[in-house]
Design a protein around this nucleic acid. Structure first.
Lengths: 158, 158
DNA sequence: ACACGAGTGTAGCCAAGGCTACATTTCACG
DNA sequence: CGTGAAATGTAGCCTTGGCTACACTCGTGT
């Protein structure tokens, strides 16, 4: 600490030279949250996709997973290994991938979030194709608070 | 190519068992775009912050950069090395970091995008703190098309 | 019934982006 | 004007998530 600052919540550069814009206080937590969300993103993408594949075709095969996500099959295999480690999926060699209860819950949440984000973007006038594409990245950074606001907004609009 | 498919744009599982939901066609490009955006995110975060620091205090020091982004200083040093490699920043040992023209353009675009995203979120009813926090992750996945729609929406609202 | 092609697994490489530990340089202050 | 604390640089490690190359299984079709 640096003595008794009379207004400790002031921006860091409140005393900066006149004419210079004030620098916002450091908010490292915001970036840390974003990094954490990004680390979760892969899990959400895979669980959601696996759930879709099982619903549509009865099984989730490594090759199909890889094709949908635009990665090679060893990458998909490695990711499934991580899903297993985290208790989200089960699999036996050459027998496809299945979700645990926990994995299915994650998939359901991810899908709901995705749909809401797409709907909001479209409601704001974003072309559908761009909305779907951007949502793929955006959805992982939408907090519960923001998601709730989105839902209220869509509701309000009918 | 695989022969003359009479309806090549049909969803992959259009012939799936009745009662099963149709699986959307694979869209690997969407995920590839999201991954690419994520790879750009670090550059945007750093250029924007460095620009802010220089505007507010006249210089961008490694320690301040690290503090604002919530990383240790060697991590910030390594990132600045990457900025230099990509022609976005210049720096000399112990002398702070500065942006090239290219870096300043990236910073300007990043800041504008950030502001627009926050404004839209707030307009939709997201609490300011959550809006700022989520925007940190969302902004990197907002395409030009979506950004334009956001701007029109804000404009329309006055 | 088996051979071969498609699907899957495995090994090992790479780059990115975190970290800790330690070395070096600056510069403000006594 | 010298020195010690703070700032910066550097080395080296770890994990993640890509990739290619190669080995193995499965099951389909003749």
């Amino acid at each position: 600490m640096i003595g008794q600052d009379p207004a400790p919540e002031l921006p860091v550069a409140a005393h900066a030279d006149r004419g210079r814009p004030a620098l916002p206080a450091p908010r490292p937590d915001r970036h840390e949250r974003a990094r954490h969300a990004q680390a979760q993103a892969l899990l959400e993408d895979y669980t959601e996709l696996i759930d879709d594949l099982i619903a549509a075709t009865g099984e989730a095969r490594i090759t199909d997973i890889a094709a949908h996500l635009g990665v090679t099959h060893p990458t998909a295999t490695k990711a499934v290994a991580r899903l297993r480690r985290e208790g989200l999926a089960q699999s036996r060699p050459y027998r496809g991938v299945f979700l645990t209860d926990s994995g299915q819950r994650m998939a359901a949440r991810a899908r709901a979030r995705h749909r809401t984000v797409v709907d909001v973007l479209v409601a704001l006038g974003v072309p559908v194709e761009a909305a779907e594409s951007d949502a793929e990245g955006i959805e992982h950074h939408v907090s519960d608070s923001t998601l709730a606001a989105f839902a209220r907004f869509l509701d309000r609009r009918g």
